Computed example of a mutant assay.
Amino acid sequence: MIANKFGAFVAAKRKDKEISLRKMAELLDFSPAYWSDIEKGRRNPPNLSKIKEIAKLLGLSQEEKEIMIDLASEDRDEIPMDLPDYIKDSDLARIALRKARKKDEIEGTSETTDKAWKEFIKALDEEE
């Protein structure tokens, strides 16, 4: 049995939009039983392209879509599914992640790297 954070999140959003389980399944080209299993955590969340489709159907914000991706990835026990290609394609991202991991291992804590990541995120936000 999986954690089902994704299923609970999607079910709540679907109900907020007053979309029936059957209608949601139909819109996603899933059987109602299959979609019910996903919402109840009896099946793994779908792949990234289907998750993007779900986000669009539910009218989710970018932040809500990212939360949904994180929940799906967590339930699947995977790295967030929108990141592996970026990490594979970016030498700098891989270098930064490895340096952060090494520093955490040496110091036995993530306090220093957490501070650095927060500063990095702030700098990226200021660029927007």
Rank of each mutant, 00 (worst) to 15 (best):
M1G: 15
M1W: 06
I2A: 12
A3L: 13
N4C: 02
N4V: 01
F9E: 02
F9W: 02
V10G: 00
A12M: 03
K13R: 04
K13C: 06
K13M: 07
K17L: 15
K17D: 12
E18C: 10
L21F: 07
R22Y: 14
A25H: 03
E26G: 06
L28C: 05
D29Y: 02
F30W: 05
F30E: 03
S31Y: 10
A33N: 09
W35F: 08
W35L: 04
S36V: 01
D37H: 09
I38V: 10
I38Y: 01
I38W: 02
K40E: 12
K40G: 11
K40V: 06
K40L: 14
G41W: 00
G41N: 04
N44H: 11
N44A: 15
P45G: 00
N47H: 08
L48R: 00
S49C: 09
S49W: 09
K50A: 09
K52W: 09
K52R: 13
A55S: 07
K56P: 03
K56L: 12
L57F: 07
L57S: 03
L58N: 03
G59D: 01
L60H: 01
L60F: 01
L60G: 01
S61G: 10
Q62C: 07
E63P: 09
E64Q: 14
I67A: 04
M68Y: 10
I69W: 02
D70L: 00
D70K: 04
L71V: 00
L71R: 10
S73D: 08
S73L: 04
E74P: 08
E74D: 11
R76H: 10
R76V: 00
R76Q: 14
R76S: 12
D77F: 11
D77Y: 11
E78W: 10
E78F: 05
I79T: 13
P80M: 11
P80Q: 09
M81Q: 04
M81Y: 03
M81I: 09
M81F: 07
L83D: 02
L83F: 11
P84R: 01
D85W: 00
D85G: 07
I87Y: 01
I87N: 10
K88I: 11
D89W: 05
D89T: 15
S90I: 08
S90Y: 06
D91S: 15
D91P: 12
D91G: 14
A93N: 08
R94M: 04
A96I: 12
L97K: 03
L97W: 08
R98P: 00
R101S: 11
R101L: 14
K102A: 12
D104K: 13
E105N: 13
E107S: 04
E107D: 13
E107N: 08
G108Y: 01
T109C: 10
S110Y: 02
E111Q: 09
D114C: 00
K115G: 05
A116K: 13
A116F: 02
A116G: 08
W117D: 08
W117V: 15
W117T: 11
K118S: 15
K118M: 06
E119F: 01
E119N: 07
E119I: 05
E119P: 08
F120S: 15
I121T: 05
I121V: 14
L124Y: 06
L124G: 08
D125R: 06
D125F: 01
E126A: 13
E127W: 08
E128I: 12
E128Q: 13
E128G: 15
E128C: 10
